[in-house]
């Protein structure tokens, strides 16, 4: 089985609040000088793919879209964890693209890869959380689509996937090719790379493609219809008030304040 995992590199979601900033020109998060990591659920998607590799010898390729210089760390980690091969679509504009535009480029890249039975993505990215890439990819590729998948069991027949829902899960049989968006559970906690694999990862093949080399489906303009008008960092304010008077008065005042706030 050939598995392609789409990985997105994002600014570390655990960044101190102080370092979070929005570029007013692009309306995107400032990336310069911030640590970049693989988006959280994408790591779970990679883990699911690697478990398929361990269980049934699937071949795992990781695909990422971004400025090639910046994504090398993420690619190296993915290869060290056990992916066989990596493809980088080198697009310096990638961080500014919408989910739909990205899906269009990724679909073109997957078509160029040729064989892809399963395409895995994280169920949402750690920065924009649009959740559109998986369904749009499926549409573009004419593949089946299951979202919020936590496990995949590939037997002799069609794979059976576990789709998490509130208070339980669905077991769904999918025909291939299929696009699965992956969420996390205790079974797909991303593995640590072995040191030997970290060293070997340096020798694994990484292809870099230019978006110009890809043939996008021309049915429609993926960028149309959605435009980001503004992004703001929520402001957190705190206020401190000293109650004056005798203790008894203070207590009454305090009780009143709490009642006003509907806390009492």
């Amino acid at each position: 089985m050939d598995v392609v995992v789409c990985l997105k590199q994002v600014v570390d979601p655990e960044l101190p609040v102080r370092d979070f900033a929005v570029d007013p020109g692009t309306q995107r998060q400032v990336r310069e000088g911030r640590p970049l990591v693989i988006s959280t659920y994408d790591e779970n998607a990679l883990e699911v793919a690697l478990q398929l590799k361990d269980a049934s010898g699937a071949k795992v390729k990781v695909l990422t879209l971004g400025p090639a210089a910046a994504v090398s760390e993420a690619i190296r980690l993915a290869l060290a964890m056990g992916a066989d091969e990596a493809i980088v679509v080198d697009d310096p504009r990638a961080p500014e693209l919408s989910g739909a535009e990205k899906a269009c480029t990724l679909a073109a890249a997957i078509r160029r890869i040729g064989s892809a039975d399963l395409i895995l993505t994280g169920c949402e990215s750690a920065d924009w959380a649009e959740r559109v890439v998986a369904p749009l990819l499926a549409e573009d590729l004419g593949a089946a689509c299951v979202t919020f998948v936590s496990r995949v069991e590939a037997g002799d027949g069609a794979p059976v996937v576990r789709r998490l829902v509130e208070d339980g899960y669905h077991l769904v049989e999918v025909r291939l090719p299929a696009v699965l968006s992956v969420t996390s559970d205790e079974s797909n906690r991303p593995r640590l790379p072995k040191v030997k694999d970290i060293m070997a990862a340096k020798r694994k093949p990484v292809q870099t493609w230019s978006p110009a080399d890809l043939t996008r489906s021309s049915a429609r303009d993926p960028g149309a219809g959605v435009e980001v008008r503004g992004v703001v960092v929520p402001e957190r304010t705190s206020r401190c008030e000293f109650l004056t008077g005798e203790p008894a008065e203070q207590v009454t005042a305090l009780a009143q304040r709490l009642r006003d706030q509907k806390l009492l």
């Binding site: 570390d12 655990e14 640590p35 990591v37 906690r189 991303p190 640590l192 072995k194 040191v195 694999d197």
Partner: peptide, 22 residues
């Protein structure tokens, strides 16, 4: 930790954090 890359969960997260954020 290095050959099998199997460490207890919380330690694994600490290691990943060390790697990603120092």
């Amino acid at each position: 930790a290095m050959e099998e890359a199997v460490v207890p969960d919380l330690m694994g997260e600490a290691l990943r954090s060390l790697e990603a954020r120092g």
